[in-house]
Design a protein around this nucleic acid. Structure first.
Lengths: 247, 247
DNA sequence: CGCGTGCTTGAAGCGGGTCAACAACAGTGG
DNA sequence: CCACTGTTGTTGACCCGCTTCAAGCACGCG
């Protein structure tokens, strides 16, 4: 993880142009600009947060993919969620306490760095931003609810379909779909660890799903041809994406 | 779900006396008092939130147990978390959107009712309370992280031990331990649905765990004799409970 | 007394886990 | 230039843990 040279000023942030993000008003944008301490660059495989460590920083992802995980003493790992551009991370930890999860970069990741110390100021002087933070926390919670339902109660087929469908939708929302296709930055081991299954089972389930023709996935290039059919395979129901705040 | 007669004024709330809750200062306590619209009573098995419905209300649990769940179209159910006295619920839903999870009472539950409409006012005029809300959302998220790790990556033995240990600790924090024992308000079916396993497996795993003597569970009365050993069985590590805000 | 609910236990089957081997490929160093 | 190595994806064989099916028991209640 190294400091990056070029900095993007918040009002000029390319993310803000995306339709999914609710536009911010001037005063708040000014505060966010001043709230931003700098940028950080993480390389693939690098730790953004270390499990069990403490960090005085909060981040917004500018570009790239990462994942949030927890692990057991013997090495078993559960991936909790993926982190995409526009996502705000670090809120889960309370001030003095150690992080209970780690975050690791999957690609090159550029992050806006904020100081935890100035959260008070944010809450005091910028209620709308405070509300946005809470909204984002609630959103994260909804994602976890879904994920928990998948891991706990969906069959292997449904789980795999669900994850691909989920990633597809999130990638589209975050604007990282390239020409109607998604290049997945993670290995099948990551995906298996997300779904609480073994690598082998993931692969074999994927093979069987490929025969449905509902999607194609080759060389990590995912294309979903029939989103409705995919949702059916996943035993999931689609709600339209909500516009969300960007900190 | 019916209206209850007697009302407790927030400054006199018996929950506030508990050491686990951070004491509130006057101005905020006054606002919470005015924020509180009334009380609600739910009977065992009654719905506090209906999956897929909308509700203009937020709640703090005054007494009793409930659980948060999601289900699949064919009836498979995943219990996401349990709700105990002092817990704040309803934040997960955004303003206009339908609730994506349900909450059902396990015992008689008394709830403080708040209006979602006045959240804006809370954020605008009471930054410390806003911060508390965010803190509580982050806490809920940490609980879900743990739960997801358990369901996804723990073995059946560890899962069952983990859940009992988890409930024990939360019950103690919320002050619902009676004479060093916890009377569980849920059936084994609930517990199995929490852990993403079948009722039969839960029961058989429980039988095997009973022989360790680390805890006793009979007639729904749980007693953990050696908390450290229990944590080992659960492949969990204990952090001391944190004091938390009460809305 | 009869019924419903929850707990317990046995038997049988299968879904997913583990072990193992190999192919494809990229990176490295001789 | 080409072995050598490590990573990722793929597939087969085998087995165990968990699920499903089934039945019996205890208890509370109308």
């Amino acid at each position: 993880m190294t400091d990056s040279g070029r900095q993007i000023a918040c009002p000029a942030c390319p993310l803000r142009k995306r339709a999914i993000f609710i536009e911010a008003v001037g005063a708040e944008l000014d505060f966010v600009s001043s709230f931003k301490m700098g940028e950080l660059h993480a390389r693939p495989g690098g730790a953004i947060y270390l499990e069990g460590a403490t960090s005085p920083h909060l981040f917004t992802v500018l570009s790239g993919w990462a994942f949030r995980y927890k692990s057991l003493p013997d090495g078993r790992r559960q991936i909790l969620n993926y982190v995409l551009p526009g996502d705000f991370i670090g809120l889960q930890a309370t001030l003095a306490q150690a992080l209970e999860h780690g975050i690791e970069a999957l690609t090159d990741v550029r992050l806006c760095v904020f100081s935890r110390d100035r959260l008070d100021e944010l809450f005091r002087n910028h209620p709308p931003l405070a509300r946005n933070l809470t909204w984002l926390a609630a959103r994260e919670e909804r994602l976890l609810d879904d994920q928990l339902l998948a891991v706990g109660r969906r069959h292997a087929r449904e789980r795999v379909a669900f994850l691909l469908w989920h990633l597809w939708r999130r990638a589209r929302e975050s604007g990282v779909l390239e020409g109607g296709a998604l290049t997945l930055p993670m290995t099948q081991q990551h995906l298996a660890d997300t779904l609480g299954m073994s690598l082998v089972t993931f692969n074999k389930t994927l093979q069987r799903l490929r025969t449905t023709g509902v999607f194609t996935l080759a060389d990590r290039r995912l294309e979903i041809h029939d989103e409705g059919a995919m949702a059916t395979l996943a035993a999931a129901d689609a709600r339209p994406p909500e516009r969300r705040p960007l900190i």
